[in-house]
């Protein structure tokens, strides 16, 4: 059997990759994909802790996170389509009209 620490390190690694994607990429779509990677990293940690404790709650939280991720993707992609229609660009630097 694999130790819990391995799963947690893998989860942290995935979260770091997703976070660096959010900071480094200049494309709103790739930003959303990086957010999905981060959500999945957290899911993995939840399931690993649930397995460690022999409880079903970790899996249920993961289930809720997946539904919220689906809603987030739907609204986020609708926003991306709207933004692209206005600016003909997906670079987040192009969407600064609300910036003070």
């Amino acid at each position: 059997m694999i130790p819990l620490g391995h799963y947690l390190i893998l989860s942290g690694l995935l979260f770091a990759i997703g976070a660096s994607g959010v900071f480094l990429r200049r494309n709103v779509l790739t930003l959303l994909m990086s957010v999905e990677i981060m959500l999945n990293a957290v899911n993995l940690a939840f399931v690993a802790f649930g397995r460690q404790l022999g409880e079903v709650d970790g899996q249920i939280i993961t289930f809720f996170v997946m539904t919220v991720a689906a809603a987030e993707a739907a609204v986020g992609l609708a926003l991306v389509i709207g933004l692209f229609r206005h600016r003909e660009s997906l670079n987040p630097e192009a969407f600064t009209s609300l910036k003070w």
């Binding site: 059997m1 694999i2 130790p3 819990l4 620490g5 799963y7 947690l8 690993a48 397995r51 460690q52 404790l53 022999g54």
Partner: peptide
């Protein structure tokens, strides 16, 4: 965190 190196949920 305790129990990191033991096999998970043994």
């Amino acid at each position: 965190t305790p129990g990191l190196t033991a096999p998970i949920g043994e």
